[in-house]
Simulated scan of single mutants.
Amino acid sequence: MIYVVVQFTCIIYLAINTQLANFSFLSYFLILLSTVVGGVAIINMKPGNLNIVPTLKDKHQLITIGIYTYIRHPMYSSVLLFCLALMLSNAHLIAQLVMLVLLVDLILKSSLEEKLLLNRFDQYQNYKKNTGRFLPKPLNK
């Protein structure tokens, strides 16, 4: 539960300190990209899988289609892209540290989820090997 508290504290801090007047093309692009990534992830996700706490539900299913073919945690990717856009509008030292805390928190939270998924799904190890955590893995030539 601490991961969720830290995650939302970071998001709220970055949102409150956003300077809309300082938004650049990059900030708008990152928000658009985060919306697309998050939206596609929700569309590809099974409705019963959605959970903000790093636990698995009884009927949890492993999703490896759509965006999940390339990224294991696209919802976290979406959060990171969105928060990066917010941080760039007011990139003072504390905002940068909060962004770093958010990144570390999501790495730890996703690691806990992955341990649970490895225990539940035999195919998860192979899936993990072939996909990136937050970004797609480079294609092998």
Rank of each mutant, 00 (worst) to 15 (best):
residue 26 L to T: 13
residue 27 S to M: 01
residue 28 Y to D: 03
residue 29 F to D: 03
residue 31 I to C: 04
residue 31 I to A: 00
residue 31 I to L: 15
residue 32 L to V: 13
residue 33 L to K: 03
residue 34 S to R: 05
residue 34 S to T: 13
residue 37 V to H: 05
residue 37 V to N: 07
residue 40 V to G: 01
residue 42 I to G: 03
residue 44 N to L: 03
residue 44 N to F: 08
residue 46 K to A: 11
residue 47 P to H: 00
residue 48 G to E: 13
residue 50 L to F: 15
residue 50 L to Q: 09
residue 51 N to I: 05
residue 52 I to W: 13
residue 53 V to D: 06
residue 57 K to E: 15
residue 57 K to R: 15
residue 58 D to R: 06
residue 59 K to Q: 14
residue 60 H to G: 04
residue 60 H to R: 10
residue 62 L to T: 02
residue 62 L to V: 05
residue 63 I to C: 12
residue 64 T to Q: 15
residue 65 I to Y: 11
residue 66 G to N: 09
residue 69 T to A: 08
residue 70 Y to E: 02
residue 70 Y to G: 00
residue 71 I to N: 06
residue 74 P to T: 00
residue 75 M to I: 15
residue 75 M to W: 01
residue 75 M to G: 06
residue 75 M to P: 10
residue 76 Y to E: 05
residue 77 S to G: 02
residue 79 V to S: 14
residue 81 L to S: 09
residue 81 L to T: 05
residue 83 C to P: 05
residue 84 L to Y: 12
residue 85 A to Y: 08
residue 85 A to S: 07
residue 86 L to R: 04
residue 89 S to D: 06
residue 90 N to V: 10
residue 93 L to A: 10
residue 95 A to I: 00
residue 97 L to E: 07
residue 97 L to C: 15
residue 100 L to V: 09
residue 101 V to L: 13
residue 102 L to G: 04
residue 102 L to I: 00
residue 104 V to P: 09
residue 105 D to A: 05
residue 109 K to A: 14
residue 109 K to C: 05
residue 109 K to W: 04
residue 110 S to P: 07
residue 111 S to C: 07
residue 113 E to H: 10
residue 114 E to N: 02
residue 114 E to R: 03
residue 118 L to T: 14
residue 119 N to Y: 02
residue 120 R to I: 07
residue 120 R to Y: 01
residue 120 R to N: 11
residue 122 D to W: 01
residue 123 Q to A: 14
residue 124 Y to S: 13
residue 125 Q to F: 08
residue 127 Y to M: 02
residue 128 K to P: 01
residue 129 K to V: 04
residue 129 K to N: 14
residue 131 T to L: 00
residue 131 T to I: 10
residue 131 T to C: 12
residue 132 G to E: 13
residue 133 R to A: 01
